[in-house]
Design a binder for these strands. Structure first.
Lengths: 193, 193
DNA sequence: TTGCCCATGTAATACGTTACATGATTTC
DNA sequence: GAAATCATGTAACGTATTACATGGGCAA
């Protein structure tokens, strides 16, 4: 896992470097909070995964403990090597397409069910995606209301847009698929393709 | 991990049950091949994960070895319990939204890069997604050319549609995002929103 | 008889989740 | 002084990837 020859599976590291790069020095606790809020729809990690990873990253020279705050709070700062690693991953690493989605697996297996059951599954999917969509749009509203001059709201903005578009696409798919399974079913809104 | 109280993380099991349910009895080798081809864009697993899982599923009574073929080939058949488990997961389990996407993580961190680098990343993303799109459309063409009366081509058809729609959505996002970063950049095709 | 595909497994390692465990500081 | 939050860690377990290991059958 050297700085220049990377193979895969270090996304947690990259996410942490990204947050430290953008928001400045932070503790493991701070970063855990940011995982719960801002970056949550793109990558997840709990504190039990974050603390050991920070220790490894410090050992690898990607971050350093420049200061210690109250009650043992360790403040990590990204190093030059850390920034290089982050930039390298962003510019050189081509991610594998989105794989391993339980939702897509349900879509895949949908023909196993008979029409009434399949339609019920699609309704549940629609509800779940609508809830997610509202959540993401709420996040966007928060960003929009932040001080206009600040740059911070930009981090994650493109990913938010992408997530919203994907949610809308999934809703359209569910509507059209329900119509294909049963043309007489009430699509709720819109019209099938 | 009883049959009725399920929490999460048994998607591999479900995928195997789905394939066995739809295509009839098969060996671990057969199922590994199907993972490489048909179900690949939705869930992945190699033989080293599949063989032990089949053994556990047999121990749990979800499948049985009804026959043994040439050179130690074990033919698994889904049981009644297996079908129940599969149907239960499909109808009752609400999957968590698509999480942990390296592509979305790159989108999230894009503002860290300066415009020329960010645009280069978006171009690479576009190329990768176009390749994936072609692959999926190829799969759909194969399905379309199969005997019309057969049902088999239906398994996976809805997921294929969903995958293609998501790919198209990602392409549109990349185009619009590039235009937002640099309005003078050549978008290649189409016009920004 | 050499090489390729069929066919099945295990081992080592990494990644991720849940639960366990501890203690300091602030707030009511 | 009780409860909530701050703050950091480890342990146990499950899931996933890569590499290692073995042997049968068939075709050139």
């Amino acid at each position: 896992m050297s700085i220049l020859s990377y193979d895969g599976g270090m996304s947690l590291r990259i996410a942490l470097l990204g947050l430290l790069s953008f928001s400045g020095p932070a503790s493991g606790y701070d970063l855990t909070k940011k995982f719960e809020t801002s970056i949550n729809h793109v990558w997840q990690a709990g504190h039990s995964q974050i603390y050991p990873e920070l220790a490894k990253m410090a050992a690898d020279g990607l971050i350093t403990v420049e200061a210690e705050g109250a009650r043992g709070r360790k403040i990590y700062t990204i190093t030059r090597e850390g920034r290089d690693e982050l930039r390298h991953w962003l510019t050189e690493h081509t991610p594998p397409g989105p794989v391993r989605s339980e939702g897509a697996l349900q879509a895949f297996l949908l023909p196993i069910l008979d029409p009434p059951e399949a339609l019920a599954v699609l309704r549940r999917t629609t509800e779940a995606v609508e809830a997610k969509l509202e959540h993401l749009q709420g996040l966007r509203a928060v960003k929009g209301s932040q001080a206009a001059g600040r740059e911070e709201h930009k981090l994650g903005g493109y990913a938010l847009d992408l997530g919203i578009r994907h949610a809308l696409t999934t809703l359209a798919w569910a509507r059209d698929t329900a119509a294909a399974i049963d043309p007489d079913a009430d699509p709720g809104q819109g019209e099938p393709a």
